[in-house]
């Protein structure tokens, strides 16, 4: 008989009518986000960066531009370069994360945000000033040490540079600072 299929279909939509909406009102309500989400902005720790430009070399699109000059630090404190320019052109970035994988010093992280829409193309270039000023909410992608501390960028907020690396000191220091309660084995011993 015609109509019975129609009626059962109508009942289905009527049941849907009384269900709670599946969608969320985005700016006020947000869906939970995985800590490993590869966000649009990058998190960069200047204290850890040596200016080696590994990220720029490994970028498949060549969109990272780094200009450095020999920094003011004395060789005894560990020689490093001061960063003049660190431009990441996220208009062309495909968020593969190879720059983050390439960083030997745990200085560059994927971000956790996704609201980087801009009116002008040039505004999409993340400058070193923006990287310095940005709130440090690194994604835990390719950074198992962050997952080890159960860090969640959306929940826990800003992460200090001491906690971001695999070890709590910058690798480019010639000598590993002695931690409390650690046994010294002497200079030069393997």
């Amino acid at each position: 008989m015609y109509g019975l299929g129609i009626l059962s279909g109508m009942v289905v939509t009527l049941k849907n009518f009384f269900r709670k909406p599946f969608t969320v009102s985005y700016p006020e309500q947000r869906l939970p986000q995985h800590p490993r989400f590869r966000g649009e902005e990058f998190t960069w720790y200047e204290e850890r960066c040596t200016g080696c430009a590994s990220c720029a070399k490994f970028c498949p699109l060549g969109i990272i531009r780094i200009v450095t000059h020999p920094g003011g630090t004395t060789p005894a404190e560990g020689d490093s370069y001061a960063i003049d320019v660190f431009d990441i052109d996220i208009a062309r970035c495909m968020f593969c994360g190879l720059c983050v994988e390439a960083c030997p010093y745990d200085a560059l992280f994927m971000g956790s945000g996704f609201e980087e829409a801009k009116y002008r193309r040039r505004d999409l270039v993340i400058s070193v000033e923006r990287l310095r000023a940005a709130e440090k909410r690194p994604s835990t992608w390719y950074r198992p040490q962050l997952e080890g501390q159960a860090y969640d960028p959306r929940r826990d907020g800003s992460l200090p540079w001491q906690k971001a690396g695999r070890e709590p000191w910058p690798y480019h220091l010639p000598q590993r600072p002695q931690a409390e309660g650690e046994k010294t084995t002497g200079e030069g011993t393997p």
Binding site: N16, F17, P21, F22
Partner: peptide, 13 residues
């Protein structure tokens, strides 16, 4: 709005 609710979404708000 009602079509939104029938499709289990919110509709213009």
């Amino acid at each position: 709005r009602l079509i939104g609710r029938f499709q289990v979404r919110i509709g213009p708000n």
